[in-house]
């Protein structure tokens, strides 16, 4: 079992000397814990005094802006400004001083590695979203019918609380490979060899399986999230409606297909689009498990590599823009649906 212990010891995590950190950073800590709330309260009270000095009629139209102002400022500063900067950079060379038009995009979209990453992102998009929704819906539906619903839901939701890096370590044990002449210690290969008498498989390295093996980790992590939201929507369906259907002689499957599913559709769409965005943003699992080797690369990891390993702002920005373009339609669709659900309440 030395191998598995070694894996833990080599966790790519930050190890921080907390004692020294706290003693060194105590002033900063105090500033954040006490200063920030003080500043916020001060801002709200201070601006309200100012607003009250305005003529009565214009107060209602000014006050919302005063309150939403800081939020707009921060979103502008840390979201909009960098986004615009990234888009601009994607049209310049890697030093950022020569306009090169679409060259960065052309370079990236003809690169073999990027094409494989694009293909894998499609895998993630379809399989990850599909499986999370299917399992989430199934579990929400089944859990609704048992007495120990809370326990089941808590257990299934648990992986959501684990960081992706820790998840990857857990799954490394599941996918662990040892040659066929020694006993298997990995869960999957143990089952494969001992019960089905097959040959052990290198799940993470074998290009026939590895993308699916990685996606499964992501699915395991997000199913609980989908289940909880879908379950809330399921419970929102009035019992009279279901009873009426039963009285009319519909069986459970028909009720599910004709009554429950249509009523839950808006929620399913919202969860689905959120998963699509998660799939496009996927990074950690691939970074930790394979670093993009063995044809498992995805766009976000390649972007990270372009930025930090190659120090190539131009290529990294171009990839970021490609990802952004892929996400925007989903984002708009998601917002519309979300609004529709809100309105129906």
């Amino acid at each position: 079992m030395d191998g598995s212990l070694g894996l833990i010891a080599r966790l790519p995590a930050l190890q921080v000397d907390w004692g020294t950190l706290v003693s060194v950073n105590l002033p900063t800590l105090l500033f954040v814990v006490l200063g920030v709330p003080l500043a916020l309260v001060g801002y709200i009270l201070g601006t309200d005094v100012l607003v009250r000095r305005l003529p009565k009629r214009s107060q209602p139209s000014v006050r919302p802006w005063v309150w939403v102002g800081p939020a707009i400022l921060f979103v502008g500063l840390i979201l909009v400004y960098p986004m615009v900067g990234t888009i601009v950079r994607s049209f310049f060379d890697r030093h950022g001083d020569k306009f090169v038009g679409l060259d960065n995009f052309r370079l990236m979209l003809t690169d073999n590695g990027v094409l494989i990453a694009l293909r894998n992102n499609v895998y993630w998009l379809v399989l990850y979203t599909g499986l999370v929704l299917t399992f989430g819906l199934l579990l929400a539906f089944l859990a609704d019918r048992v007495r120990y619903e809370k326990t089941v839901k808590t257990l299934i939701f648990m992986p959501m609380a684990i960081s992706f890096v820790a998840m990857a370590v857990i799954w490394q044990f599941v996918y662990y490979y040892r040659p066929s002449d020694v006993p298997q210690t990995g869960t999957l290969n143990g089952i494969l060899v001992n019960i089905f008498h097959g040959q052990p498989i290198t799940w993470i390295q074998d290009t026939r399986f590895n993308n699916f093996a990685l996606i499964l980790i992501g699915v395991w992590g997000a199913t609980g999230f989908a289940m909880v939201i879908l379950s809330a929507a399921l419970k929102g369906i009035p019992a009279e409606l279901l009873e009426a259907a039963r009285v009319d002689g519909a069986n459970e499957l028909t009720i599910f297909r004709r009554v429950i599913l249509p009523l839950m559709m808006p929620t399913i769409v919202v969860v689905g689009t959120t998963m699509v965005i998660f799939a496009l943003k996927a990074f950690d699992v691939v970074y930790v498990m394979t670093a993009g080797n063995y044809n498992t690369d995805i766009l976000a990891r390649r972007m990270y590599a372009e930025l930090y390993s190659a120090g190539n702002n131009a290529n990294a920005s171009a990839l970021a823009v490609i990802l952004l373009l892929a996400v925007v339609p989903v984002l708009i669709f998601n917002l519309r649906q979300f609004r529709a659900v809100e309105e129906r309440r």
């Binding site: 790519p12 995590a13 921080v16 000397d17 020294t20 060194v24 990270y304 930090y308």
Partner: peptide
């Protein structure tokens, strides 16, 4: 002199950042 030590396996990225 006190030592404040931070360890990372991704030193290149952390240092450049």
């Amino acid at each position: 002199i006190k030592i404040s030590f931070e360890a990372t396996r991704d030193l290149d990225a952390i240092l450049q950042t």
